[in-house]
Simulated assay, not measured.
Amino acid sequence: MPIRPENRHRYPADWPAISLRIRTERAAGRCECHGECGRGTHTGRCPNRQGQPAYGTGSRVVLTVAHLDHQPENCDDTNLRAMCNGCHLHYDRDHHRQTAAATRRAALAAAGHQPLFGLADIITTPCARCGAQATTRAHCRPDLLVNPDPAAPAGADSAPFCAPCADWVVSAWRGTNHAPCGRDRATWAAWTTPLPDHGTA
C-alpha cells in the first residue's frame, strides 16, 4: 500500500529492502493471508500472486506488506505479512475507519466546530444499533436536513453509532426512503458528525 507522506517518518530507512524480502523471499510472490483479512472468500492461503489476475475479480494483483499491529515502527518478521492488495485493504478496514474519523475530527476542530458530546458523554455512549462504543452521530432522518421540522426537539433527527453501523444506517435510509442526494463525501459529511476522540483509537 502507498505510504502516506505524514507517516513516512514512522518507517525504518531500510523499509524498501524489508518489504522486498518479505514479498519475494519469504512469500515467494504469493499472498500469505490465511483468512486473517476477514474477507471470507478463500480457505487456507490466499491464491493471489504478484502481477497475476486476482481470483474473483481478475484485476492485477499487487503484493504488499501489512503490519499486523498497524504500527509501521514494528518491523519484526512476526508482525509482517505479505498480502495482496485486496486482503491488505480488508485487513486494515477498521484501522482506516478509525484514522479517517480522527482526520475528520481534526478538520472539524480546525474549522472551529464544537463536538456534540463532551468527553464524559461519549465514554458512556453506546451505539444505538449494536451497543458498541459510539464514534459518530448519524442522522437517522436525513429528510429533516432538507426539510427541517422546527417543532422537533434538538437532536431528534440523529443518534450515536459506531462507524460500521453509521454507514449501515445511512445506506439503509437511502435504500428505503430515496434520499435526495447521492452518497458521496459531501453527503456523508452532512449526515454524520464525528464524536470527539476519547482515547480508544
Rank of each mutant, 00 (worst) to 15 (best):
G38V: 03
R39G: 01
G40H: 01
T43M: 10
T43C: 08
G44P: 01
R45T: 11
C46M: 02
C46S: 05
P47L: 08
N48D: 14
R49H: 09
Q50S: 14
Q50G: 10
G51E: 08
G51M: 04
Q52C: 10
A54T: 13
T57C: 07
G58K: 00
R60L: 08
V61K: 02
V61A: 03
V65I: 09
V65F: 03
A66F: 02
H67G: 04
L68P: 06
D69F: 01
H70C: 10
H70W: 05
H70F: 14
H70E: 07
Q71T: 10
Q71I: 13
Q71K: 07
Q71V: 14
N74C: 05
C75R: 02
C75L: 01
D76N: 11
D77E: 15
T78L: 14
N79A: 12
L80I: 07
M83G: 11
M83E: 14
N85C: 06
G86E: 11
G86S: 14
L89P: 03
L89M: 13
H90R: 01
D92S: 03
R93P: 06
Q98G: 14
T99M: 14
A100L: 15
A102D: 09
A102Y: 02
A102E: 12
A102L: 14
T103F: 09
T103I: 09
R104V: 10
R104N: 09
R105S: 05
A106Q: 12
A109L: 11
A109C: 05
A110L: 15
A111Q: 10
G112H: 06
G112Q: 07
Q114D: 13
Q114I: 05
Q114A: 13
Q114S: 11
P115W: 05
P115G: 08
P115Y: 07
L116V: 03
G118V: 09
D121Y: 01
D121V: 05
D121R: 06
I122F: 03
I122C: 07
I122H: 01
I122G: 09
I122M: 07
I123T: 15
T124M: 11
T125S: 14
A128S: 15
R129S: 13
R129M: 14
A132I: 00
A132H: 08
A132K: 06
A134T: 01
A134V: 00
T135N: 09
T135S: 15
T135Y: 06
T136Q: 11
T136P: 00
R137K: 10
R137H: 12
A138S: 03
A138W: 01
H139Q: 08
P142E: 09
D143N: 02
